[in-house]
Design a protein around this nucleic acid. Structure first.
Length: 442
RNA sequence: GGAGAGGUGGCCGAGUGGUUUAAGGCAACGGUCUUGAAAACCGUCGUGCUCGUGAGGGUACCGUGAGUUCGAAUCUCACCCUCUCCGCCA
């Protein structure tokens, strides 16, 4: 959510930023100026009447206490009521319209974010690692996984339908090893605290991080979740949706709280499954396990002071890159252009890992700075030490560290051998009981 | 799921229709005192919206939403959450 006062005072800037994203300011903001004016007018009038009402009510009290007749004053107050109800209703309607309009406006990208339309316009910031050369034609992971007996997509379809996977034997163990390896690195070496949050959240939480109201179709909701309410901008605390990322429960941990400055930065990491409906992704990445309805991810989330968020963003991105470096997987870092930056983000780096089986770089981590966009929605503030300090919104950040399923893919494809076996990266061996090579399962 | 109790500011906690512009305490912050610190004492101390160039004013907020009333933290209804006990259960 953008700050109302900022939008009012910088409408041209906001509109330019929205256009840079490829969004239509008119469609998003409508007649913002007129609406804002009507709203404020209704509020001012209503409050003036309320002041009058309160004054008269006090007179009634005073008169009654003095044993005098208060009928006339009571009548006058009663007469105010009709007009007041009308004004209040109008004010509430304008307010609701503004709130709903603003809730669908994406964040403003930072000035250093390059203007562009799509991922084709994302500049590459750095490239790391040497692509291995193979004296055979490297296979995609779905072939390797099936041949090794560590990935069973056919039976997953029987259980759950398309876009689900069953990992078997050392395949399952590899997934689990990756989770532990990532969490240990984040907690033991990089200063994060581990969190194990619920995998279902209410609609208020999804509003807080920006998935609702706009992206309800991308989510799986439980039968007690009222999508119609969410679409109307009513967010409940007793409905349930499957989380699309750990970002949602972890960021919302401090919703409606005021944190002490001394506690910042707060750095958390969480392993969770993630559930995505993949609405509109029909026909995309249908082979293999790149795009699933359920996948596992280790996430990093930070709450920081506004002046620190730029530096913390770089640190967080480096924390994700370190995993790829330890696993010796070639990758590159790209900066998302305005047209490709997500709804809630002000600036995003994507890490893309090299997949030789498919001959392309593939997103494996997305590290974003949200500025105060999420904290304003979720009302997460901090209070600085010192006299007369008012609570201020924190900046939130998060990034995958990493998407586990895609890391699994990257290892299988990058470390494949001519005989179809897969060498286990050295850093991961302690997590697999010293196993050096994954070979065909019985 | 059943029965009972409860939900008040950063925290604890008073408050059952009219100076409540929410008592009191703790914490925090500023000051006095002190070589420094602690203690003691004095003072400051909620959030949003809105009006105002400003000082400042108005208004709303006591779990959420409706309602009764001239007036609601206080009364009524619905819902949510927490705690205790019972039931069911991994």
């Amino acid at each position: 959510m953008l700050d109302l006062g900022f939008v009012r005072g910088n409408l041209e800037v906001v509109e330019a930023k929205l256009r840079a994203r490829g969004a239509d300011p008119a469609a998003l903001l409508g007649d913002f100026r007129a609406l804002d004016q009507s709203r404020r007018q209704a509020i001012t009038q209503s409050e003036q009447l309320k002041a009058r009402r309160n004054e008269l009510s006090q007179q009634v009290g005073a008169l009654k206490k003095a044993g005098q007749d208060a009928t006339a004053v009571m009548e006058e107050t009663r007469a105010l009521k009709e007009k007041l109800d009308e004004l209040d209703k109008a004010a509430a309607e304008f307010d609701e319209k503004m709130r709903l309009a603003l809730s669908r406006v994406p964040n403003l990208t930072r000035d250093e974010v390059p203007t562009g339309k799509s991922e084709a316009d994302n500049p590459t910031i750095k490239t790391w690692g040497e692509k291995k050369s193979y004296d055979f034609a490297p296979k995609p992971h779905w072939e390797l996984g099936a041949e090794l007996g560590i990935l069973d997509l056919d039976r997953a379809t029987k259980l759950s339908g398309a876009r689900f996977a069953v990992y078997m034997g050392q395949g399952a163990k590899l997934e689990r090893a990756l989770i532990n390896f990532m969490l240990d690195l984040h907690t033991d070496k990089q200063g994060y605290t581990e969190v194990l949050p619920p995998f279902m959240v209410n609609s208020k939480s999804l509003y807080g991080t920006g998935q609702l109201p706009k992206f309800a179709d991308d989510l799986f909701r439980c039968s007690d979740a009222d999508a119609a309410c969410a679409a109307k901008g009513e967010f409940k605390d007793n409905d349930h949706w499957l989380i699309p990322t750990a970002e949602v429960p972890v960021t919302n941990l401090y919703r409606d709280e005021i944190l002490d400055e001394a506690r910042l930065p707060i750095c958390l990491t969480a392993y969770t499954p993630c559930f995505r409906a993949e609405a509109g992704a029909a026909g995309k990445d249908t082979r293999g396990i790149i795009r699933q309805h359920q996948f596992q991810k280790v996430e990093m989330v930070k709450f920081v002071k506004p002046e620190d968020s730029e530096a913390e963003h770089e640190k967080l991105t480096r924390n994700a890159e370190e995993i790829l470096e330890l696993l010796e997987l070639p990758y590159r870092r790209v900066l998302l252009c305005t047209g490709d930056t997500g709804f809630s983000a002000a600036k995003t780096f994507d890490l893309e890992v090299w997949l030789p089986g498919q001959g392309l770089y593939r997103e494996i981590s997305s590290c974003s700075n949200f500025d105060a966009f999420q904290s304003r929605r979720a009302n997460i503030r901090y209070r600085a030490a010192g006299p007369k300090s008012k609570p201020e919104f924190v900046h939130t950040l998060n990034g995958s560290g990493l998407a586990v399923g895609r890391t699994w893919v990257a290892i299988v494809e990058n470390y494949q051998q001519a005989d179809g076996s897969v060498i286990v990266p050295t850093a991961l061996r302690p997590y697999l009981g010293g196993l050096e090579r994954i070979e065909k399962q019985k």
